[in-house]
Design a protein around this nucleic acid. Structure first.
Lengths: 230, 230
DNA sequence: TAAAAAAAGTGTAATTTAAACACTTGTAAT
DNA sequence: ATTACAAGTGTTTAAATTACACTTTTTTTA
């Protein structure tokens, strides 16, 4: 076994691109950047980076996220690897797409200085470079499936949220109206939320109770065979 | 835009590895090969190959499958990209895993000469090189999910099959016993099978009617909003 | 200060879907 | 003619999902 074991094979550039989802009151948004290098400089793009020889993909994606948002501990999942030969006109490059869910509010403070990054609602996002549009579509499809089977919605909300906010979130993800009572009954039956004594007064005179995801309880229920299913 | 646009970035070897599933009467099997090059020469491995500069991943995976099984038009799906830095001791290599479903019977004829390839039932598969075991686990998990929401089971069966064979297949995939009547009722209600006038006499004196997947009907139902759900 | 407005909060009945369950039929072998 | 073996076939019960409307709380305004 020598250093040249695979020396007859091709080596290829590997990019990591992130679809960063946020949620803002009523709708899903994605975070895009104005590309500041060629090719396609100045066009809107997913945020990305290249994979280094000495890091794995999760690390590369984490780095990209950390760099743009200043956030660590972000929910993140590998999505798909895009490999069309001419997807990047500059050079042969594969891209491994990741998607991430962040609490848009937490992020806002940090990013205001980032001139080149901007949140777009999914509906009116600009034209994206390369195959990034396909990446977003695939990410959205994955998010929809995942949201029904894993409690990942909370990643998009502040730690404390009202049932109404939670419902609006799911309505945005699934792109359909849900029945208020059925939604609440469903979540109550799952029994993974903590009802706080605090109320959110920002959206009504009466105020709405705040809830929190009880991750510990969720985990122990999972250990006992429970599985989240909306 | 010059040829050296990305010249400061690293290039990396990219492998494609295939988890090939087959079904043999009662159980799921995977096709493995004895690796005939270093490192780990002589050990059991998934079948794989390297990605060339001028092909995309699907093409590379198709080539791998075609080469080993002699089959074209195989059901195949990209699974996940494995990137641990030291996953291949010989050199830094990423591997994009694909899984494929083939009719084991169709394949048998072609592969008998292939000395180094062998079918193993999932339970008693040998130790695999690198991270191939994880790949198989992930493929199996994906197959289980997929089989419940897409009519892909048929890819593992001959064109004509009995309801009992179909049931055994799903039992193998899901690793649990199913009720005969409920299973048949379910498939009948989906209304995507053609009942033939032929019988299979190989497993009983009475003989069992053969069925066929009606792909055309399925597709047109999908166009009308139908979705397969077992 | 009574009425209107605005969002929060709450339960039940109807429908649909999934699960449990056992006997009869047809044919070859003895 | 009897036995053995897998094929084939419906109904009942339970569980999950869906549809649906009024009351509460508090502020604003007439």
């Amino acid at each position: 076994m020598t250093l040249s074991t695979y020396s007859k094979e091709d080596k290829i550039f590997l990019a990591v691109d992130c679809i960063i989802f946020g949620f803002d009151k009523e709708e899903l948004k994605i975070l895009l950047v104005k590309r500041n290098f060629e090719p396609e400089k100045g066009k809107w793009s997913l945020i990305g980076g290249f994979l280094k020889q000495d890091e794995n993909l999760d690390e590369a994606a984490t780095k990209v996220l950390q760099h743009l948002t200043g956030l660590n501990n972000v929910y993140m999942e590998q999505l798909y690897t895009f490999s069309k030969v001419d997807r990047d006109p500059a050079d042969r490059t594969l891209s491994v797409a990741y998607y991430a869910l962040i609490d848009i509010a937490q992020h806002d403070k940090n990013t205001l200085n980032e001139e080149s990054a901007k949140w777009f609602s999914l509906k009116d996002a600009p034209t994206l470079i390369f195959d990034h549009k396909r990446m977003v579509e695939r990410a959205l499809a994955r998010l929809r499936r995942r949201a029904l089977t894993k409690p990942i919605g909370f990643e998009l909300l502040p730690e404390k949220f009202t049932m109404r906010q939670l419902q609006k979130l799911y309505e945005a993800i699934l792109d359909k109206k849900l029945d208020k009572r059925n939604f609440i009954n469903k979540f109550n039956s799952l029994d993974i939320l903590i009802k706080l004594d605090e109320k959110d007064m920002s959206s009504s005179k009466k105020g709405a109770y705040l809830f929190q995801f009880d991750e510990e309880k969720y985990n122990s229920k999972v250990d006992d065979g429970f599985s989240f299913k909306l």
